[in-house]
């Protein structure tokens, strides 16, 4: 009897791995291997165009990355993006997540369809659409400001102005992500048991009171998840910048005047414009380090809460 059970166990192990194997081969070749290779590369000097072989140089790529002035600009821009993006996406995501749970509102069903539309459009195309309406000469936005509401002093060359370029990229990113974030809030709100809500209504709690004392505390976990997702989105900000500022060739990406240069774009430029694979890898790992630290922090927070 015992050996029969053991036989099943061995067979389960073999069959289990056989089923996973094809997926694992792909993950290994295009994920596990490259991730480790980049880690090694980050300690090597290797220019893809000039050098025939990588040479070990210790931490000098990391030092060089951190010494590059534009990398610090990139860090600052990523931070700026994060500090704007997080509150905006949380407030709007919660608002629309709440709106699409309202059963009596006819248009909330419409909202549930419309808010997801940007997710279906490739992000680069969304960027071009925004470039169209922000076109300084023929765009809808400037025309609206100048001719419809007659405030011509508000007209700007939006994407060529270092004061606005990053903010517009924030708007595009919010536009793209709002559907998914609202969905997370929606399911969080729907997860609150209706009996608690009904009891509060019977006890005469006002809508504001119910929001403050029941809905918001119950959404703590959702807020946490959304916050982490927002930070990850901020750190990975890339396609929007290249699509909206790289029109004059890859070197212009991150402009005007480096005002939209992010960590991700700086990494891409190091590796694929300068072909300095070593510094590029180091920059990539510095970026990953931030994400890993956040995950560690989140893990500790949730653990200490549960304990």
């Amino acid at each position: 009897m015992k050996s029969l059970k053991q036989g099943k166990k061995i067979r389960d192990n073999i069959v289990g791995w056989l089923f996973v194997l094809p997926a694992f081969v792909f993950l290994f070749s295009f994920m596990i291997y490259p991730i480790s290779r980049t880690f090694i590369l980050s300690f090597q000097k290797f220019n893809f165009v000039y050098d025939s072989k990588p040479v070990f140089v210790g931490l000098s790529n990391y030092v060089e990355a951190l010494k590059t002035p534009s990398y610090l600009t990139a860090l600052k821009n990523t931070l700026r993006f994060t500090l704007w993006y997080i509150p905006v996406i949380i407030v709007l995501g919660f608002l629309f997540g709440y709106i699409i749970t309202l059963p009596k509102l006819f248009s909330s069903k419409l909202a549930k369809i419309v808010l997801f539309v940007p997710m279906v459009i490739p992000i680069s195309m969304s960027c071009y659409m925004f470039l169209f309406i922000l076109n300084p000469q023929w765009g809808l936005v400037n025309s609206f400001l100048a001719n419809t509401i007659h405030l011509p002093m508000l007209v700007r060359d939006w994407m060529n102005d270092p004061r606005y370029a990053l903010k517009i990229i924030i708007v595009v990113t919010v536009w793209q992500r709002i559907g998914f974030i609202s969905l997370l809030f929606m399911s969080g709100i729907q997860g609150i048991s209706s009996s608690i809500m009904e009891a509060a209504i019977i006890d005469g709690a006002s809508a504001a009171r119910r929001m403050w004392s029941i809905v918001l505390p119950n959404l703590k976990e959702t807020f946490q998840i959304v916050g982490i997702l927002a930070i990850i989105t901020s750190i990975k900000l890339f396609a929007q910048v290249v699509a909206m500022t790289g029109a004059l060739g890859p070197n212009s990406a991150g402009g005007p005047a480096n005002s939209t240069l992010t960590l991700y774009v700086a990494t891409w430029k190091a590796a694929f414009i300068n072909f300095d694979m070593g510094v590029g890898s180091a920059m990539g790992y510095l970026m990953s380090l931030i994400i890993f630290l956040l995950f560690g922090l989140n893990f500790m927070l949730t653990k200490s809460e549960r304990a």
Partner: peptide
């Protein structure tokens, strides 16, 4: 391990995989 690894992939910046894939 596999489940952990797959969740990890979701969060890393993909550019660290592109560099060796480009060389490969």
């Amino acid at each position: 391990f596999i489940i952990f690894f797959i969740s990890l992939i979701l969060s890393i910046p993909l550019i660290i995989t592109v560099i060796p894939i480009f060389m490969m």
